[in-house]
Amino acid sequence: MHMMTVKQCGVWAVLLWPYLLSVSIPLDCKEEQGSLSRCPSISQEKLLDRVIQHAELIYRVSEESCSLFEEMFVPFPLRLQRNQAGYTCITKALPIPSSKSEIQQISDKWLLHSVLMLVQSWIEPLAYLQTTLDRYDDAPEMLLNKTKWVSEKLISLEQGVVVLIKKMLDEGMLTTTYSEQGLFQYEVQPEMLESVMRDYTLLSCFKKDAHKMETFLKLLKCRQTDKYNCA
């Protein structure tokens, strides 16, 4: 049953992956595929739409990656114990609103800066995750490709959000990388089970944060069009 499920996932991924690649361009700021250096030349509305599309794709693929990793490497009892075993998300210390009321009350400025903090805090951990997944004997190519794709697109999303902040808030380009402030720490040679659970925690936490990025950006879009009805 396990092998059949993995095989079915592989077939599904092969069918879906060309679609993901074909729609992974929305943040490029020319009509054709190109550099983000042209982002200032397009309208604020179009840039926000492309940033949202990018965040949607990142969340979708992160969800698929987490599910695939869970099925391949995490025994079912450990899935239930993860939250009880002291594993915490690396972005827990960031001043990111969490409750519905907090999110609704924060300004557009803090919505954008919250997205930027989340994006930048995950760039280093996802890059490191690539090196750990390469050490798994049975890691499917599909999982490696998905996590690599997310890691690369996260950098592109960061660039888009920075330009969006400059457009919407008239602020200078922001370069602070929050992962450099000690948010991400890891063992050099952890035990295998610890390594698996750490990677599982990273993927699970990133999936949650990717959903937050998407939610914040969609709320921002709603405020631009229907300020008083964005519950």
Rank of each mutant, 00 (worst) to 15 (best):
M3R: 12
M3D: 05
P18K: 09
L21V: 12
E31T: 13
Q33M: 12
L36T: 09
L36G: 15
S37Q: 14
R38C: 12
P40A: 15
E45L: 09
K46S: 15
I52S: 02
I58Q: 05
R60L: 13
S65W: 02
L68E: 01
E70G: 09
F73N: 02
P75N: 11
L78Y: 07
Q81A: 06
Q84A: 04
G86Q: 06
Y87F: 13
K92A: 14
I96K: 08
Q104Y: 08
I106H: 11
L112G: 04
W122L: 02
Q130G: 11
D138Q: 09
D138A: 04
A139M: 13
E141I: 07
K148I: 09
S151W: 01
L154T: 02
S156V: 10
Q159A: 14
V162Y: 06
L164Q: 05
K166Q: 12
E171S: 06
M173A: 14
T176C: 09
S179M: 13
Q181W: 14
G182E: 12
E187P: 03
V188R: 15
V188A: 13
E191C: 02
L193D: 04
E194V: 09
R198D: 06
D199H: 00
S204V: 02
F206G: 02
D209C: 04
A210V: 05
K212M: 12
K212T: 10
E214H: 08
F216G: 01
L217A: 14
K218H: 12
L220H: 08
K221R: 12
K221P: 05
C222V: 11
N229Y: 13
C230R: 03
A231V: 03
